[in-house]
Structures are given as C-alpha cells and as structure tokens.
Amino acid sequence: MTAEAKVPVRVILDTDMGSDCDDAGAMAVLHALADQGEVEILACIYSSEKNQFGPGCIAAINQYYGRGEIPIGAAKGDEVGDPRNDFLEAIASDAQRYGHRVRTCDDVPDQVAVYRRALASAPDRSVTVISIGHTKGLLALLHSGPCDFSPANGHGLVALKVKEWVVMGGAFPVEERPGWNFGANGSARYSRALVAEWPGAVVFSGYEVGSDIITGPCLQGTPDDNPVKTAYRLWDNALENGRASWDQTAVLYAVRGTGEDWELCRGRCEVEDDGRTTWQVDECGPHAYLVKRRPAESLTLTIGDLMARPPERRGVSSR
C-alpha cells in the first residue's frame, strides 16, 4: 500500500523586496520547495510603498522559476517602506534578460484585492500567509469590507481561509529595541494592531533565528540570468560576503513545519507602540516563536541548497 500523497501547502508570500537581499533568497527557497511539490504559491504581495520596482523584481524571480503567472499585488501609498534601490530597478527594468512583463507597482493590482481574491478561491483553513515585510497591508486586509470575490469582511475572510500566519519579525523572548519589520520604515503604527487583531494562529521567526544562518555564496554557481543571484551581487556584494537568512527561515518553517529543524515556544506576543515585541509564556497561547533544533551550520546547508537548486520548470512558457 502506498502512502497518501501530501497536499502542497498553499502560500501567499508578503515581502518588502529591496530592503534586503534575503527576500530574494526566501523566494528562491519557496520556488525550490514548489518544484518539489511541497508548496503551491497562490500570490505574491509587495508591501513597500517607497520603491515602485518591487513587483518587477518579484515577477522576474517568478519568471525564472517558470511561474510567471503567479498573481502579484502591491501597496499603493507613499507612507511605509524603504527607498533603498540596490537591485530592484536593475532587475525590474531588464525584461530582455529576465523575460518578465511587470515592471512597477502601476502594472499590478492593489495588494488587498489580490489577497482577497486568492483567499476567497482557496479551501477553508488551507492558506498559510508568510509575511517577511511590512505590516500595513495585512492590517488593511483585516479592515477590508466585502467585495466581488467574497461577501465576508477582512477579519471574517482571514478567519475562514487562513490556517496560519508565519511572520518574520520581532525577537524572542526579549526584544531590546524595535526591529525592522515591526518597528522601522513607518510600520510600527500598524504592527501592534495587526498582531492583536489577527484571528488565528501566528508563528514568529524572530531576528535571532536567521542572524547566524549565512547564505549567498551558494548562488555563485547559478546562471547569470538568475535574478536572485543578481540581487545578492548588488546588495553589498552578499554573493561573496554572505547575508543572514532571516526571511528564509520563515519560509522553511511555513512549508515543512517543525520537523527536525525547529521547536515552537508557545505564548502570547504583544507589540509596543514603537514596534518592539514583548512575550508572555502560555502553553495554550495563540502564538509561538521558532527555536532552532539544529545547528546554524546545518540549517545553512539546507537553505543554501534550496536557494541554489536549478529551476525544474525553467523554459516553461508563462507569459
């Protein structure tokens, strides 16, 4: 008797692509896991409002892995985000090299519309939201009203459709100063409400989890038209120097669960007004944070292998 096939994890990825190169690394891990049948990527959301080229970079990465059809949504304001532009414009504007069609935020719908459409069409309690960027867009989703895709308001839609929210943010159990995703670039005013209002399970991959998992050189042997390789080369030459794998850890857990990689410490997280996280231990709490079960060197090899894996769908027409 053969084992029953495992249903791929349905994922929406929310990223502030451009603030760091680990967002590109996280997308490489996600696509490699999709190539192995472990995950289905429902949509990608660009959560920064300070650089218009994020969707183009996301589209180039999706195209490289043969999934150019994945819906992309983007934040449309001018309040939250990081204008840093080491690699976004260079990748987004080079359609000849990367073969994608999207360039800027103007080329894609609003993030809330894409979220609602992806969630509405998914089975109940089946979607994992992975956020490795800003918090404003997810709070806007919670506060959204009924639309053509669903009669439910945002809270109701998330409660009905989302199985788990996996977020790279905070530091645990004690965060001494506000971190990047919850506290910087205008996000702090949204982070506290988002965590407090989220109607379901939340797992945090804190700053401490990925800070000593250094990847980047693993991409040196990949093709020159790999946009993830380009992102690491242009971001402080992380292709040679390496960079912490904060966002990759969130993706790895979201798709594979705890396994041999992680333990979960359960409790309740609250976010202060400045974006700093505080933690209360509670075995029955709605929140958890990741703790490494394997040494950083071992997780570096796992994540690096996934980042460097050749796309299995390369050459598939998706334009």
Rank of each mutant, 00 (worst) to 15 (best):
G81T: 01
W279L: 11
S121Q: 15
N153H: 10
E79S: 14
A120F: 12
V166F: 03
V158S: 09
E49D: 12
P199W: 01
D148G: 12
L30P: 09
G156Q: 14
V202T: 10
R293Y: 10
V127A: 06
V271I: 15
T15H: 04
F87S: 04
R243I: 06
A74L: 07
L88H: 08
A152K: 15
T15N: 02
V291M: 11
H287C: 07
Y232C: 00
E197F: 00
Q36V: 03
D78S: 13
Y190D: 04
S131Y: 01
T128P: 00
D305C: 06
G170I: 07
G186Y: 01
D282I: 01
R125H: 12
P8A: 05
A24D: 01
S150A: 15
I130H: 06
Q36S: 15
L290K: 00
V158I: 14
P311Q: 11
T15V: 15
E272N: 11
A60S: 10
D86H: 14
I61N: 04
G206R: 05
G304K: 02
I130E: 08
Y46S: 06
E272C: 13
D305H: 11
V316N: 06
V102Y: 09
D274N: 12
T300D: 00
A201M: 04
G77H: 05
G221R: 08
P146W: 03
L299C: 08
I58E: 05
P123W: 00
C265Q: 14
R276C: 13
R84A: 12
E270H: 12
L306F: 13
A28S: 14
V11E: 13
G186N: 05
P178M: 00
G81A: 09
T258Y: 03
A238D: 13
A201V: 13
A238C: 15
V166M: 02
Q52W: 15
N62D: 14
A28I: 01
G68H: 12
P151F: 10
D22V: 03
P151Y: 08
A308T: 08
R309V: 01
G259W: 10
P55V: 04
Y253P: 12
L306M: 10
V127T: 09
S211L: 09
R268D: 01
S187R: 05
F87H: 05
G137I: 04
D82R: 07
W279H: 07
D22T: 07
S126V: 04
A308D: 07
N181E: 14
E164M: 07
G267W: 00
A184M: 08
I303L: 14
G275M: 03
A118C: 04
L142D: 00
V166Y: 02
F149R: 02
L88M: 09
P123N: 09
A188H: 02
E164A: 03
P286W: 02
E260D: 14
A201Q: 11
I70C: 02
C284G: 09
G18W: 14
T277G: 02
K76Y: 00
S47L: 11
Q280D: 06
Y115G: 05
G206A: 05
R192A: 14
M27W: 03
C147V: 08
K163R: 14
T249L: 10
N226D: 15
A74H: 07
D282Q: 01
H155T: 07
A159S: 13
V195L: 09
A201R: 13
I45C: 01
W235D: 15
T215P: 06
N51K: 11
A34M: 04
S47T: 15
H143Q: 11
N85H: 11
P55K: 01
A201E: 11
A118P: 02
E312D: 09
L301R: 12
R293G: 03
